[in-house]
């Protein structure tokens, strides 16, 4: 077993066991924290597919998460207050399908445009499209605009109740494991080889006969849809959603998790999410100005430590 596999197993076991144990021993707070962590890790894992393995520096990933959350909130809102009968429902299956579908479709539409470009253009355009989604939601008064939307009824499934925090946690945890396995499967497949090849040398890939644009677009849509799913979970977790979820600083945080944890490794985004949540919690206990040390740390990591945590923990052995 390589060090990296060992690290992945240890981290995943800890993330899966520790929070429920704490919860059952009377520390409910930590379960909340862990649920948020796991959901963010799903979003970060989806980002890792395009950023880490595909080399697409998307700075708009939070938009997919936000759209996924609104795909839960909007049907629930109409179910309670009427209107839009076609989508008014609290059925979790419909909402999840909607979340994945809407986020995937948004990824397709924006991807068609932004994947025509590379480099800085791509970074800025993904940012701009995310901002477009942000302003779109903001402009619809019915869904609360700036004030956000309260999700009165969580998604309903017949075999699980998301109102029970421990069940919600396990749903999120199992989802994370599946998301990691899916990304791993994609990455190792023929498709994934092309995707990674296109990250390293797109011109060569074109010369070999691969239409790099289409491969990237497919990966982008998969990634967006997956982030939409994470958003649906996040909506169910917070029960309050607002355009702020799509703010570009949220996208930046997801990037931070992927890069800090270790891009193009399975467990990297999870470790990144752990570090992010722990820092946020720990630092904000000491000072309301926790963004200052956080920002300084981010700069220090970029300036001085490359390869992220997975890189540091598994140095020299693998690779």
């Amino acid at each position: 077993m390589t060090r990296r596999t060992l690290l992945t197993i240890v981290v995943m076991v800890l993330v899966g066991l520790l929070p429920p144990l704490l919860y059952w021993s009377g520390n409910a707070f930590y379960l909340d924290l862990a649920t948020r962590l796991v959901i963010l890790a799903i979003a970060a894992t989806s980002l890792n597919l395009i950023l880490g393995y595909g080399g697409m520096v998307s700075f708009g990933h939070a938009a997919f998460v936000g759209l996924g959350a609104y795909a839960v909130g909007i049907p629930a809102h109409h179910w309670l207050y009427g209107g839009m009968d076609a989508i008014a429902t609290t059925s979790g299956y419909v909402q999840i399908a909607l979340a994945v579908g809407v986020a995937g479709f948004f990824a397709l539409l924006t991807g068609l445009v932004c994947l025509r470009t590379t480099g800085v253009y791509f970074i800025m355009i993904t940012m701009a499209f995310a901002q477009m989604a942000y302003y779109l939601i903001l402009s619809i008064e019915e869904y609360g605009g700036d004030d956000g939307l309260v999700i009165d009824t969580r998604s309903e499934f017949n075999w699980i109740s998301l109102d029970d925090p421990i069940q919600l946690f396990f749903l999120a945890y199992v989802s994370l494991v599946i998301a990691m396995l899916i990304v791993r499967m994609i990455v190792n497949s023929r498709f994934g080889m092309v995707l990674q090849g296109a990250k390293g040398n797109p011109e060569r890939m074109a010369t070999l006969g691969f239409n790099v644009y289409v491969f990237r677009l497919v990966a982008y849509v998969i990634s967006g849809a997956m982030a939409g799913y994470a958003g649906a979970l996040l909506g169910n977790f917070t029960t309050f959603i607002s355009p702020e979820m799509m703010d570009w600083s949220r996208s930046g945080e997801l990037m931070f998790m992927v890069i800090l944890g270790g891009a193009s490794t399975s467990v990297g985004p999870v470790i990144g999410a752990v570090v992010f949540i722990v820092l946020e919690e720990f630092l904000s206990h000491f000072t309301i100005y926790w963004h200052l040390p956080f920002g300084l740390m981010l700069m220090a990591v970029v300036l001085f430590a490359r390869g992220g945590f997975v890189g540091m923990l598994t140095k020299r052995k693998d690779r």
Partner: peptide, 9 residues
């Protein structure tokens, strides 16, 4: 990433 950190700072 670095300038994102700088914004926070």
């Amino acid at each position: 990433l670095a300038t994102f950190g700088l914004i926070l700072v």
